[in-house]
């Protein structure tokens, strides 16, 4: 059996899965959001501590699920700390997939993008809170 068959499970993914970055909870998160993939039951919560410059000071995640979804959440938290909320709004799905550094099939991209989706939903929710009923 060649190694390429086990493609997505390289050291980068497995290291994040086994020793995740900032897995747990913040004492006083500025914002928090959870979602799950109803097909496979993967679940991810992302929590952010945002400073008064709208910059992410700390990012934590918690969750249950496959190696791809959990490693991706860990990688996401590591990457978004220090970024401003505006920068995160420009953050694209393809950039998230690139950060994983492995090629995912269409069905596994849902796992790889679960935490990204949680982050994006949270950011939109914050916008709505700040600009209530701005649309006429």
């Amino acid at each position: 059996m060649t190694d390429s068959l086990e493609d997505p499970y390289d050291d980068h993914i497995l290291d994040h899965f086994e020793s995740p970055y900032h897995k747990g909870h913040l004492a006083n998160p500025t914002c928090s959001h959870s979602d799950r993939n109803p097909i496979c039951g993967d679940q991810v919560t992302v929590e952010l501590l945002v400073d008064d410059q709208d910059r992410v000071k700390e990012a934590y995640f918690d969750g249950k699920g496959c190696a791809i979804s959990q490693a991706a959440a860990s990688i996401l938290c590591e990457q978004i700390e220090g970024k401003t909320l505006d920068e995160l709004k420009d953050f694209q799905a393809q950039q998230m997939l690139d950060l994983l550094k492995v090629r995912l099939t269409a069905s596994r991209q849902k796992c790889g993008l679960l935490s990204f989706k949680v982050l994006k939903t949270m950011l939109y929710g914050m916008d709505e809170q700040r600009e209530p009923a701005s649309s006429g």
Binding site: L5, P8, C40, C66
Partner: peptide, 9 residues
């Protein structure tokens, strides 16, 4: 091994 990872392998 999560079932999703197992079925992928």
């Amino acid at each position: 091994v999560h079932p999703h990872d197992l079925s992928d392998v």
